[in-house]
């Protein structure tokens, strides 16, 4: 074991971890925004719209993320003759992929609120929009926090796939050093620990949020 190597490569690894965090945060934000739209479309009474969204969701959940990344990184430039920065390509691929999962999480959250709530609200004179805004969504919100955090953790770990398109995120940073020093064990051990610190921090934040919102 060469702990000196871990110490001396730590700054480079942390730079990579910072890239990992940025990609995860951006993709989660865009994924939730896009996913909300997709969830609404999915629950739309218009059959063609909900059918179309179902196709969108199945397509993204039924194909490997790595393939989607390659499709965007190598495929879009081939079609458009335009360069696409690998960081941007990564965020696009992850946001789109994440939107499918987020949409299903949100739909499940909304549909888990008993029908009686909606009926009661309507009979008390709430409009359908008000019912959604004041009765359904606030309750659904607390229920979707844990699965959304899970999605965040999944994204964080999956961002390692971007190493394949030469984004120097945490995994790639470790790979680059181990390819130079031929010491994979030390490097991947250090990389694992840094991932673990990040995912544990996310879980911790999630538990705090859950506790705060569930008391009400």
């Amino acid at each position: 074991m060469d702990f000196g190597l871990i110490r001396e490569s730590l700054p480079f690894l942390l730079q990579g971890a910072w890239v990992t965090l940025r990609i995860t945060a951006l993709s989660l934000v865009f994924g939730i925004l896009l996913g909300t739209l997709v969830a609404l479309a999915r629950m739309s009474p218009m059959r063609w719209l909900s059918g179309l969204t179902l196709g969108y969701i199945e397509l993204l959940r039924g194909t490997p993320l790595l393939v989607q990344i390659f499709l965007i990184f190598f495929g879009i430039p081939q079609l458009t003759q335009q360069q696409i920065n690998e960081f941007v390509a990564g965020v696009i691929a992850f946001s789109i992929n994440s939107s499918a999962y987020v949409a299903e999480i949100l739909r499940a959250g909304i549909q888990s609120i008993p029908k009686g709530q909606r009926e009661a609200a309507l009979s008390l004179g709430f409009s359908p929009t008000q019912t959604l805004r004041y009765i359904i969504l606030p309750q659904a919100f607390t229920r979707v926090i844990p699965p959304l955090v899970n999605e965040g953790i999944t994204l964080l770990k999956n961002s390692s796939l971007l190493s394949a398109i030469a984004v120097v995120e945490l995994t790639r940073a470790g790979q680059l050093i181990s390819a130079r020093t031929f010491k994979p064990f030390e490097m991947y051990l250090a990389v694992s620990l840094i991932y673990l610190v990040m995912t544990l921090a996310l879980s911790f934040v999630a538990r705090q949020l859950e506790r705060r919102w569930q008391v009400r």
């Binding site: 335009q82 690998e86 394949a164 030469a166 680059l176």
Partner: peptide, 18 residues
Amino acid sequence: VKSYNLYTDAALALNTRQ
């Protein structure tokens, strides 16, 4: 420097203007 897993990917990246 853009380091790819496969040399064929590096060539593909050049050909697709990446």
